[in-house]
C-alpha cells in the first residue's frame, strides 16, 4: 500500500497535499481498502468554510457510510465533481484523480500538526 511521502495524514484516514496556502484533500489507500466497493460520495459546494475535524461530506461503500473530515481549517475552492457519477474510480486511485476537495487553508502552519507518512503507516499497523 502506497502513502505519498510529501502528504500529511489524519487518524481518520484523510490526506492533504499542501502547496503554499492551499491544500488538496482525499482519503488514503488504507481507507479505500477498508471500505470495499465505493458506491456514493457526497461532497460540499465550493465556498463552504470548515474547522479542522468538521465533517465535509460522506463516502459510502456497499456496506457502510463514513464521514469525511477536514484535516485543517479552510474554505473549499474546488470539488472533484467527476466522483459524483463515477465514485468507483476512487478505488483505483485515491491520491491523484481521486482527490475530493481543494481548500484555501486558514493557516498554512496547521498542517504541521498532522501525521507524516511514516507516522500514519505506523498508526494503521497498530
Amino acid at each position: 500500500m502506497d502513502f505519498p511521502k510529501n502528504f500529511k495524514y489524519t487518524k481518520d484516514h484523510e490526506w492533504i497535499d499542501v502547496q503554499g496556502n492551499s491544500g488538496t484533500v482525499g482519503v488514503t489507500a488504507y481507507a479505500v481498502e477498508q471500505l470495499g466497493d465505493i458506491v456514493h460520495i457526497d461532497l460540499p459546494e465550493a465556498g463552504k468554510t470548515y474547522k479542522a475535524g468538521d465533517s465535509f461530506g460522506t463516502i459510502e461503500s456497499t456496506k457502510t457510510v463514513s464521514d469525511l473530515y477536514m484535516p485543517v481549517a479552510g474554505k473549499v475552492t474546488a470539488v472533484n465533481s467527476a466522483l459524483k457519477s463515477a465514485p468507483e474510480s476512487l478505488q483505483a486511485d485515491s491520491y491523484k484523480n481521486g482527490w475530493l476537495v481543494k481548500i484555501e487553508m486558514a493557516s498554512a502552519a496547521d498542517a504541521a500538526k498532522l501525521l507524516d507518512a511514516a507516522a500514519y503507516e505506523a498508526f494503521i499497523k497498530e
Binding site: 470495499g36 466497493d37 458506491v39 456497499t62
Partner: peptide
C-alpha cells in the same frame, strides 16, 4: 476473505468485492 462478526458468528463479508 474479509471476516466480520454476524449474529454471533465470524463470517466472510466479501472476497474480491461485493459488486464483483
Amino acid at each position: 476473505a474479509k471476516m466480520i462478526p454476524f449474529g454471533g458468528w465470524v463470517m466472510p463479508v466479501s472476497y474480491e468485492g461485493v459488486l464483483a
